[in-house]
Design a protein around this nucleic acid. Structure first.
Lengths: 145, 145
DNA sequence: CTTGTAATGAAAATCGTTTTCAGTTATAAT
DNA sequence: ATTATAACTGAAAACGATTTTCATTACAAG
């Protein structure tokens, strides 16, 4: 279904435009993140990245994920068990459905949470900055096994 | 506002009814969790608990939180930065608003997510098991400072 | 091509969490 | 009350994930 919704070159251009250098390890990491529909842990990125780029170090994975997150190209997601998984950033009012077994991700454009957010803001006096709407389940592929 | 919505004795009774023993460290931990309106990390619980019970060990905190979570008395919550904070369990269709500075929690009875959940379930073929709806912001007290 | 600086990977340090273990204590049976 | 036993405790060690340090490498501007 979603093969390359975001071209790899766009990410590389954005990195360069922000003053970062284009290196072989970064290319490998960007490539796999753009192509994956799964929420990946740093170790996942490391293992996948070493297929294309065997010398890749785990530290570089951490640093590259940090930069990609700063640029808004990837987002961190939390799962009920582990935290700190990374994912191509969603755009607009998209929410996530995650498979708790394999980490596969589906995005859905559910309700706009802004009305709710404003209502709660007034009721509580908080200044609301962010919201999470995430569903968790088992994807069809994992349901078979 | 919410001083002791759940009596400490109920939690202690539940622990005992489930075959667990009532000990001094557990009393201290239960007491502070029942009384707190903040999402607390294990270290927070440790520090607070040692006021009443100076000998308290961090390992006991982890083990007690594990048991209280099993019994459904506390729930784990994730924050954008750190994970694994603990909180008196909400009941029913309650969702959370968390202060990203101090961890204070407000619960609100927002939308029932079941209709949305079923719609997405049919659209994707996933079997949905759980959902998170959380808002993040700054509470009035932290907004001043 | 040369040069300055960012980026790299290995090793060490650090932090949060879990396991191990010997000693202690709550609880049930006597 | 006393005892027996199994659960519980806290300290230390082990462990895994993440960060820091540092010497070397390589991108990119001139």
């Amino acid at each position: 279904m979603s093969t390359h919704p975001v071209p790899i070159q766009d990410w590389l251009d954005q990195l360069q435009a922000s003053g970062y250098r284009l290196t072989a390890p970064r290319r490998a990491i960007v490539e796999l993140l753009v192509e994956s529909n799964h929420a990946l842990s740093p170790i996942d990125v490391y293992d996948l990245g070493r297929r294309d780029h065997p010398g890749l170090g785990l530290v570089t994975v951490y640093r590259t994920l940090e930069r990609l997150e700063e640029l808004g190209l990837v987002q961190r997601v939390h799962l009920p068990d582990g935290c700190h998984r990374y994912l191509r950033a969603a755009q607009g009012h998209q929410h996530l459905l995650l498979c708790t077994r394999c980490g596969q991700v589906e995005v859905f454009s559910g309700d706009d949470l802004n009305p709710l957010s404003e209502r709660v803001e007034h009721a509580t006096g908080y200044t609301i900055q962010d919201h999470w709407l995430q569903l968790f389940g088992v994807c069809p592929r994992c349901a078979i096994a």
